[in-house]
Write a protein that binds this DNA or RNA. Structure first.
Lengths: 235, 235
DNA sequence: CGGCATCCGGGAAGATACTG
DNA sequence: CAGTATCTTCCCGGATGCCG
């Protein structure tokens, strides 16, 4: 697997599968990120670097060898970079390149479109990154107009911050330094729970009791109402 | 293939491949249109119904059985409809449903993103639909501001009309009735040639000599300058 | 000829086990 | 923890053939 397959286009996007032989950008896009799992791997990297086992844990059902292969391919195509964190961490992480991050509109458009599917099942497991990205995709511009505030999220060890203002939302990963840096950080409320439960509250109308909210609870509840799933398409 | 595989979810999106088991809309989207060739089949239907053999001709490299399978799946998922044209035509065509047409932003986002690829080869064959869709994706909003006009295209038997105005572009298929209806139609110029040659002129700076232009040639040349490929990403 | 169904070979994906 | 090795399953691609 190291040299055998390198017979084709070393460095470039290996023509592992036969090319679509089509000048259309969409076809080329499928050659880059159309392989099974590829776009979901990239999705998990959209909010910052991840470790191999974190990716594996948040992509239920992917097998280790497939994840290895996808990461190699994405790296060869210039969408993912392998990086070693400085000591004392010294662990290897995978991060999206600048261009890889630019695939966010693709992920967003696909997600918004598929949310209209009659067969979409929101009760399935959901990764923390998926949830946070869904906020940027499902923000109701009308309702966001009159809102301004910052809400933090904690899922196990992972932390995120969502700031809404000027009718837009910006989501980022909360860093370690921030946790100890400026007290509780700039968030006005902190939501803790499982991503699936947060989704159930925001999109499924489940009771807020499911979540552990500290800080400005009223603000958090108003925040939850900023998002809406699109209407279902006709089956 | 008629009854054996129907053990799973008859009518719904058959779980031919194992599901991603992920509540994320993007993951569900990949289950709907993530199969190889599926999105390109849908692309060919974005500007109107097509026949089986037309699809096959414009999707170089797809085999008949795979096309059959993709069409069946897209139909089962509610993205494509099979329709029989009224006599005397009486031929069967495949057309995108309303929801299927709504996948256009997905195709557009993927195409715009992939156009930045260092490995994108615009010299490959290009279908007429791909070319016309590229106009809607690559329109330079700045340049389109000062332009207003309608340009027709003829590729063999296929005809299209692109109208630019108010900084936006609208592309549609030219119908038979229009051809004989209102003289030359409302287009101010008519461009004839191979889609690849048009792309070479518009995106590759090739000489306009490649094309057969009738009507307002100056307008056509100005039209060609309205589109621009995004800058390449770092390799 | 258009629209499939069928059979076959190669190869990617999935599951499991194993290693540094 | 971060992958590799191996085996099985099944999808993709190509060819052929059927049938209106």
């Amino acid at each position: 697997m190291k040299l055998e397959n390198m017979t084709t286009a070393a460095g470039g996007p290996d023509a592992r599968r036969r090319s679509y032989d089509d000048a259309c950008g969409t076809a080329h896009g499928l050659e880059l990120i159309g392989d099974r799992w590829a776009l979901l791997v990239l999705r998990e990297l959209m909010l910052g670097p991840r470790r191999f086992s974190d990716l594996r844990a948040d992509l239920p059902g992917i097998s280790a060898n497939v994840l290895t292969q996808r990461l190699e391919e994405l790296e060869a195509r210039g969408l993912v970079r392998r990086r070693k964190l400085p000591p004392p961490a010294s662990v290897q992480v995978y991060e999206a390149t600048e261009w890889g991050l630019e695939a966010e509109p693709v992920i967003g458009a696909l997600g918004r479109w598929a949310a209209r599917s009659p067969w979409h099942d929101p009760s399935l497991p959901l990764s923390a990154v998926s949830l946070m990205l869904s906020f940027t995709n499902m923000l109701d511009a009308q309702r966001a107009k009159g809102f301004e505030g910052t809400v933090g999220f904690r899922f196990g060890e992972e932390r995120f911050v969502a700031r809404v203002g000027d009718g837009a939302i910006r989501v980022r990963r909360g860093s370690e330094s921030q946790r100890q840096g400026e007290g509780q950080g700039e968030e006005q409320a902190l939501v803790a729970g499982k991503p699936t439960d947060v989704a159930a509250v925001v999109y499924g109308g489940a009771p807020v009791k499911l979540l552990d909210i500290s800080g400005d609870k009223t603000l958090a509840k108003r925040f939850f109402k900023l998002f809406r799933l699109p209407p279902k398409a006709a089956a």
